[in-house]
Design a protein around this nucleic acid. Structure first.
Length: 293
DNA sequence: AGCTCGACCTGCACGC
DNA sequence: TGCGTGCAGGTCGAGC
């Protein structure tokens, strides 16, 4: 279920275990996920020290002292779990991962020199792993065309006013378009539009203006930042909780006001409407037709 | 050029 | 209990 806040949480959970640690061995248990794994992936990872981790949109970039970057996307169902090794002093006291624990969906298993075992599992296999030289970070085909970060300085009402001028695409689809804003997913787009009181069906261009961004557009930008920021904060706190129970990263409970609330009363003061579910571009949209215009 | 939709996979919840 | 159907948090690329 990873959207951007989950990916950020996963990256933050991997960081203390991976950074500065060396990859002792990698068990690659199938030929690929959504795409084939890069040539000789295990060999190219083995023996490397991890220099740093960062997130770009919903991608995690893990830089190695070989000069390469390991790119990871969690797809729909990808997850990392951190275990202690037999002799390790790792992240999760007392939780070990043995040969006999390897599950059908455990596709890539990293054994770290510090003793930790990091397992990538992904039942639907929509995830991605790739390896490329650090110089290619801006030209890599999966990264080159990404738009602005939702929490970055480049996401402004002025920016969207230009990007969306003349775009008849519904707001829902416009917000999901990774070439404009990179990293928004179905849940948080529903939530942001709900908070902003904007219909997901409204054409994006209708909240732009030649003279400058409309109040509606300014509010939407604020709501996008708010909802993503709050979810990252919630992930940060749940990460601390998870770290004491098991090593699983990236799944935490949110309270959504629109997403998956079909039939429930709209939570907005004095609205009295009901959350509806419609399908747009083949995906569920949840919204309140009474207060979202 | 802009936009929608199918395809890629497995698992789960639901109704009969 | 078993089976069929539809649905799922992503995104690339074909085709209108």
């Amino acid at each position: 279920m990873p959207e951007l806040p989950e990916v950020e949480t996963v990256k933050n959970g991997l960081e203390p275990v991976m950074r500065g640690n060396r990859i002792k061995s990698v068990n690659v248990r199938r030929a690929g996920l959504r795409f084939p794994f890069p040539e000789n992936m295990a060999a190219r990872l083995t023996g490397n020290r991890v220099e740093g981790l960062k997130r770009r949109a919903k991608y995690i970039l893990i830089s190695l002292d070989s000069g390469e970057i390991l790119l990871v996307h969690l797809g729909m169902t990808g997850r990392f779990t951190i275990y202690n090794g037999e002799t390790g002093s790792g992240h999760v006291p007392g939780v070990f991962y043995h040969q006999s624990d390897i599950g059908a969906h455990d596709h890539v298993i990293f054994d770290m020199e510090g003793g930790e075992t990091i397992v990538y599992a992904d039942p639907r296999r929509f995830g991605i792993m790739d390896l490329f030289a650090q110089e290619e970070e801006l030209t890599h085909p999966l990264l080159a065309h990404l738009g602005v970060e939702p929490l970055g300085n480049a996401l402004t009402a002025d920016f969207l006013n230009e990007a969306w001028r003349g775009r008849k695409m519904p707001l829902k689809a416009a917000l999901l378009d990774q070439k404009t804003i990179a990293g928004l997913g179905n849940i948080y787009v529903c939530e942001a539009l709900y908070r902003a009181g904007l219909s997901p069906r409204r054409a994006a261009t209708t909240i732009t203006a030649k003279s400058g961004p409309t109040k509606r557009l300014e509010l939407l930008v604020r709501m996008v930042r708010d909802v993503i920021g709050e979810a990252i904060d919630a992930g940060g706190s749940s990460l601390r909780d998870y770290a004491h129970t098991d090593g699983e990263l990236g799944y935490f409970q949110h309270s959504f006001q629109a997403y998956d609330q079909e039939g429930n009363a709209c939570a907005k003061e004095g609205c009295g409407g009901t959350i509806n579910r419609i399908v747009q571009s083949g995906r569920s949209t949840f919204f309140c037709p009474t207060c979202q215009r």
